[in-house]
Design a protein around this nucleic acid. Structure first.
Lengths: 294, 294
DNA sequence: GGATACTATAAATATTTTTTATAGTCGCCG
DNA sequence: CGGCGACTATAAAAAATATTTATAGTATCC
């Protein structure tokens, strides 16, 4: 049995049209007909019903079931290709969401440099959700991910290394600047400048607004914490970020939240369950664990 | 790329010998050489080092990594074959460990019969551990499994439907027969007749003996609860089983355990995450849920 | 009734895999 | 040391498979 056949099949499931699938793969239409026939013979099942009357292609239960497995197999192959290509290049792709890249990675990089393995690391930036998928499809081998709940996925292994509360940052000229701690509900009338690229902050923020029954007035969303901090300093609005972002500015004040049951920013080291660590990769992971878990 | 190549590769990983793999598949030796070459070209990596000096075959890191994926892919295909074969025969294989088969299944079967779908069920008997693997490799489509901890596996979905405490059963002539409840530690000097085929009972039993610091005197292990009960009635020993086994005998007395933190016998309906339910299979699951969850 | 949009079939070609036959490498042992 | 045994590799031929080309079939739409 040929993998191509599964590829054709998989595409036919999506496209529901033999000729178009053929075009997608730059082969002629009978090729697809034959491929499906081979699969139908191999699995001894009808995979599609050719409904000429309504001119549509119906996927049988057997077809649906096979589609699930075909998908897994094709993904597994893709991951294999990517993983082996990383191995060949002697590097490891480390996924980093922007916040983690800015505030945790420098420490890690220094350690990796000392051990002479920094050159084997290739970073891949992206939001937490996107990186999770990049891990799954083999684009990344390891990722440091932020989340509000402990991560638990079928194909990934996560090891938590830090928990940080979320804080409120206001301008030094802001009336609340004199305070050290506040309740989230006190922010009902404030304007917010928020972080947009990371889904995690939004999740946490939305939880809190919902729990406190208000619709926040979000005046701006930025992808970079420095931009946000500058806007906060200018008193354009207040923001909601993790404490690690603090960074000794004197034009911005950090306020702790007093609410019970606050969401926390959980940081984890995540890998694929199927990923086999080389000795070099094990050292990288050890450095990550050592540096990040204090 | 051909699945056969992965099959050859997978076997070579196990056997570490080209000629033997060739023999295993009834092909000639150059076939294996070529297959590995094709994979090495396809993945642009060396998969094995042929160490002529020590006359052994060394698997490279790339080889190790590919092996993991090859295994997954081959398993996925095997599952697909089995699942589609069940679909073709219009049946569903239901795995049942002996205890569950005896004490829960009759109720279920009656309901399934009423709905006219009993004939579509094929049961598969086996211990919990064995059935878990049967689910994973597609031999079974659904299983009712017993466990002492909630089931959580990567490739399986479990839905709990019952929790039962474990009980002690003694002969009506036994000194303890007058009691209703006892502490497990009071059984230090007893002889035990235990259930052997189900790993779950042993796990729970061992937990308790360990916690109470004694080495139990196990005089016999049987695969059938009736045998055990008969031995208990004859006062050969006492036993440790779930309450459902009770079955109105007057020569045997059931004692509840007074210990805090007792292990419980958790029963769950388990399926593969990758399994697509047909309408008929959905009805079966509904009957299972309806009947078993009261 | 002809044009259009699909899928299927059959024969010819092209491609890929396997076999056959043989060579190469190394260790072992008399 | 030389021949034998246990391996794997290579090359050419043969066999098996997949793809293309060309064409037929079936149903819809106008």
């Amino acid at each position: 049995m040929n993998i191509n056949d599964l590829d054709y099949f998989n595409q036919l499931i999506k496209r529901k049209n033999f000729s178009k699938v053929a075009a997608d793969f730059n082969v002629t239409q009978p090729t697809i007909t034959m491929a499906i026939k081979r699969l139908e013979r191999e699995f001894n099942a009808t995979l599609f019903l050719r409904d000429r009357v309504h001119n549509e292609l119906i996927v049988t239960p057997s077809g649906e079931q096979l589609a699930v497995h075909a998908q897994t197999i094709l993904n597994e192959l893709q991951v294999a290709h990517r993983e082996l290509s990383h191995l060949a290049d002697q590097h490891m792709v480390l996924g980093l969401p922007p916040i983690i890249e800015t505030y945790y990675f420098p420490k890690v990089a220094a350690q990796l440099q000392q051990q002479g393995i920094l050159e084997n690391i290739q970073t891949l930036a992206g939001g937490s959700v996107w990186l999770r998928n990049a891990l799954r499809d083999g684009q990344a081998d390891v990722a440091l991910l932020g989340s509000t709940e402990p991560l638990a996925y079928r194909t990934l292994v996560a090891e938590e290394f830090d928990r940080q509360p979320f804080n409120i940052f206001v301008s030094a000229q802001h009336p609340l600047a004199a305070r050290k701690r506040i309740y989230f509900s006190e922010l009902k009338r404030e304007k917010f400048v928020l972080f947009n690229s990371s889904f995690v902050h939004n999740t946490a923020f939305n939880k809190l607004t919902r729990r406190n029954h208000f619709r926040p007035d979000v005046v701006f969303q930025a992808a970079d914490t420095h931009v946000i901090m500058n806007l906060v300093a200018e008193n354009v609005g207040v923001t909601f970020l993790t404490g690690i972002v603090d960074q000794h500015r004197n034009d911005v004040v950090r306020l702790e939240l007093l609410d019970d049951e606050q969401p926390t920013f959980i940081s984890s080291i995540v890998t694929r369950t199927s990923h086999v660590l080389t000795p070099m990769q094990q050292r990288v992971i050890q450095v990550l664990q050592g540096t990040l878990e204090e």
